[in-house]
Design a protein around this nucleic acid. Structure first.
Lengths: 146, 146
DNA sequence: TTTGGATAGTTGTTTAACTAACTATATGCC
DNA sequence: GGCATATAGTTAGTTAAACAACTATCCAAA
């Protein structure tokens, strides 16, 4: 028997992701205010490179949950901004390994602080145990559908 | 004192809305399979018109959490698909009232069933009380940031 | 009654997502 | 070795979001 928790009136915001849209908009505004010339999507790519530099575009696809054309263009734009460099792999010449520039490395600290700040604003007034439950539910949703 | 529940490694999926992206993609695939020629964004506009027909573009902005140019273009495309009609208001000639066509009215039942089906798939294995908590947290997040 | 501000909607530009079709390289099998 | 297939990445076309600048209409106060 499927769960039928969703009355029609409540289904909308779950599908449209109003909460995560609001979070992303708030973070984008903070980037703009801080003169950080970076879109949230570009930041999400840098985020994974900060964790591990020199990974392939395919690995960025998996990490960011985006398809190959999206990553191609994000890397194009990040390259134009001189924040990453494509280096074609010597072991497998089909692959581009993506490396951060010094410029991009400098952006990590500020942007991560703004991201944490945004989440703290978003979660003001939410008890910690409920945040944990919410994270768990969203993880299951993702696993169910991926 | 701000909540500091977010370790850096966990912050990413909250901001990028992986769960809601996955839900929207799954629903879009169901639309395509069902030969329902409709994007999720277009569906989200129809959703509110099914609840109340003949509202203004500004009201659609508020309901769908989108800005005016986005709604202008969504209505443009829905008009091309002959799913809605713009009728300029007689009381206030600045306003367009948006009306569903018979064609669009026919799409409500099928598309809503697919949406509910998608959410049931997404929430498989999640206890009902946790879904409620999650919905509550996302609502607070939205209210905190809007 | 005119003028100035507010509101409703449109247009242009940039960035991104999705699909499909494409090129280049690698790999495994005959 | 040569061919089929899979994998990595790119390109093209459509839809959408965000922002800024714009037009048209309404309304209220001088």
């Amino acid at each position: 028997m499927p769960n039928n928790q969703f009355k029609k009136g409540e289904l909308y915001s779950f599908i449209t992701g109003k909460a995560s849209t609001a979070i992303a908009r708030r973070l984008q505004k903070k980037f703009n205010t801080a003169q950080l010339n970076l879109t949230i999507e570009q930041w999400s790519v840098l985020y994974h490179l900060w964790k591990q530099d020199g990974i392939s575009q395919q690995e960025l696809c998996n990490a960011t949950f985006r398809d190959k054309p999206s990553i191609t263009r994000l890397v194009d734009n990040l390259e134009k901004l001189k924040l990453v460099k494509r280096v074609s792999s010597k072991e497998d010449r089909r692959m581009n390994m993506i490396y951060l520039t010094a410029e991009a490395r400098k952006m990590q600290e500020v942007s991560m602080e703004l991201a944490e700040e945004t989440l703290n604003e978003a979660l003001t007034g939410v008890p910690e145990d409920q945040v944990e439950i919410c994270k768990g539910v969203l993880q299951i949703v993702y696993d169910n559908l991926k």
